[in-house]
């Protein structure tokens, strides 16, 4: 009888815990439109917000969004302040040493240089956001790297002449160039970097990774992910297409 009561208590306890664990806290930067940004209402918005909410719906999870600045976004994930990162973070071997990634939800995309003049010196002072693959690329290719905490500041540095050019995701820069009334222009050839954008998770969270991988696969299979990419990044952006439907 005693063991039965204990067993029932343990069952109730684990059930309660499972219920508590159902809220997944989703970390993002909120400063990288159109991937993620803070809208006029002060809420987190953008491609990743919409995608993340849809993934949570498919995985039947309750999700809550959390804002965290880019610098400390990985340390705060591994110390369990939130459970996932969806912040336009490219999958790279360096990051995979510390955190795990789901399969990519944006295919490997181009990074590009933007400057005030078409003949800007791409080996000069190049602005990039701290701890991004673009910053790593600038350091490797011989330009003088100027690092900034947010993506917005990198563009501002080009506008005020502090940097010769900014190097960032093409999707991020596109709208800024389009709306600059000719002030800013793309320079040089786009560079393909990284293994696409994926959702970052703790390496020990293998169940959650499997859950989100499944949800991303289902969105690749029914084409809704491609549709969402086109909605936020435009007709010309790279999509998964038929390649993404393999193994459906």
């Amino acid at each position: 009888m005693k063991t039965f009561i204990l067993g029932a208590a343990a069952l109730a306890l684990t059930a309660g815990m499972a219920f508590g664990a159902d809220t997944i806290r989703m970390g993002t930067e909120g400063a990288y439109p159109p991937f993620n940004f803070i809208n006029d209402k002060g809420e987190i918005d953008g491609f990743e917000r919409k995608l993340g909410d849809e993934l949570c719906k498919r995985a039947e999870l309750t999700c809550e969004w959390v804002k965290n600045d880019w610098d400390s976004i990985i340390p705060n994930l591994v110390s369990s302040n939130y459970d996932t990162i969806m912040a336009g973070m490219s999958i790279t071997p360096e990051r995979e040493k510390v955190i795990a990634f789901t399969q990519n939800y944006i295919p490997p995309a181009d990074s590009a240089y933007v400057a005030l003049k078409a003949d800007a010196n791409l080996k000069g002072n190049i602005a990039a956001q701290t701890s991004t693959i673009q910053a790593g690329h600038v350091a490797e290719t011989g330009g003088t790297l100027l690092e900034f905490a947010t993506a917005d500041e990198t563009v501002a540095a080009v506008r005020n002449g502090e940097a010769d050019a900014v190097f960032a995701d093409k999707e991020f820069l596109q709208k800024i160039v389009d709306e600059s009334k000719g002030e800013l222009t793309f320079v040089g050839e786009p560079v393909a970097l990284g293994g696409g954008v994926g959702m970052g998770l703790r390496q020990s969270d293998t169940d959650l990774k499997a859950t989100f991988d499944k949800a991303i696969t289902s969105m690749k299979c029914d084409g809704s992910l491609d549709k969402l990419i086109i909605e936020y990044f435009g007709e010309k952006s790279k999509v998964f297409g038929e390649e993404g439907k393999q193994g459906c």
Binding site: P33, P34, F37, N39, D45, K175, D178
Partner: peptide, 9 residues
């Protein structure tokens, strides 16, 4: 920070 039309009205 500068805002484009997609991110803000």
């Amino acid at each position: 920070g500068s805002k484009t039309t997609g991110a803000s009205a």
